[in-house]
């Protein structure tokens, strides 16, 4: 917690088991580790979301394992998967039912832009109709990326910039390069070099 001990006399600060802070910071700190996500999982990204919640990636490390499937109990909406013309009214309704403060994560290419589905039935990016705070690219994003997105939400929640904001935050998570496992790294002699002086 970003406590502020400097305002107290040194002697007092050392002896007393207290920490002074602002109420906003304290509340933000509490919120940060108790996000209750609501997975609006429609397609492939939903399965990746399940993978993140399961043992290997373990979303519980970030205090966000308490999935609530009712919007009234959750404060973080994960839109995982493409949203179609038939599904969009449902999404809007769910967003409206969530209580403040609330954040929306658009997970994957389909939710953010329509992805490969540039067709008559798919909404080309949910941000046209619902405010989106964090975009996670990838089709579907790797679990590490999803965790990165969640940590971004934690940062936003800790800063307490929720009440009376008029615009969605629109943070984009950068894709990170994942290291190749050593056993699969090509050896120097295996790499095919173009013959002649092509480059």
């Amino acid at each position: 917690m970003d406590g502020n001990r400097n305002n107290l006399p040194d002697a007092l600060a050392d002896k007393l088991p207290i920490l002074t802070t602002t109420l906003d910071t304290a509340v933000g700190w509490c919120r940060k580790y108790s996000l209750w996500p609501m997975p609006f999982a429609t397609a492939c990204c939903g399965i990746e979301f399940m993978a993140v919640a399961c043992s290997r990636f373990d979303l519980a490390r970030f205090g966000a394992e308490a999935m609530r499937f009712t919007p009234r109990q959750s404060d973080l909406l994960f839109v995982a998967g493409r949203v179609t013309v038939k599904m969009l009214p449902v999404l809007q309704r769910i967003y409206q039912q969530m209580c403040e403060p609330k954040w929306v994560v658009s997970m994957g290419a389909c939710a953010s832009t329509g992805g490969v589905f540039d067709t008559y039935a798919v909404v080309q990016g949910i941000d046209q109709y619902v405010p989106v705070d964090v975009y996670i690219p990838g089709c579907p994003p790797r679990p590490e990326q999803l965790i990165e997105g969640l940590m971004q939400i934690q940062k936003i929640a800790a800063e307490g910039k929720t009440q009376s904001r008029s615009k969605p935050l629109g943070v984009v998570i950068e894709p990170k390069r994942t290291p190749v496992p050593l056993s699969l790294k090509p050896k120097e002699e295996d790499i095919l070099k173009p013959p002649g002086s092509m480059c």
Binding site: G81, T84, K86, T119, Y120, V122
Partner: peptide, 11 residues
């Protein structure tokens, strides 16, 4: 059904 109809066959 049809809440995830994305036009695969048209694509």
């Amino acid at each position: 059904i049809g809440y995830l109809h994305s036009g695969f066959e048209k694509l």
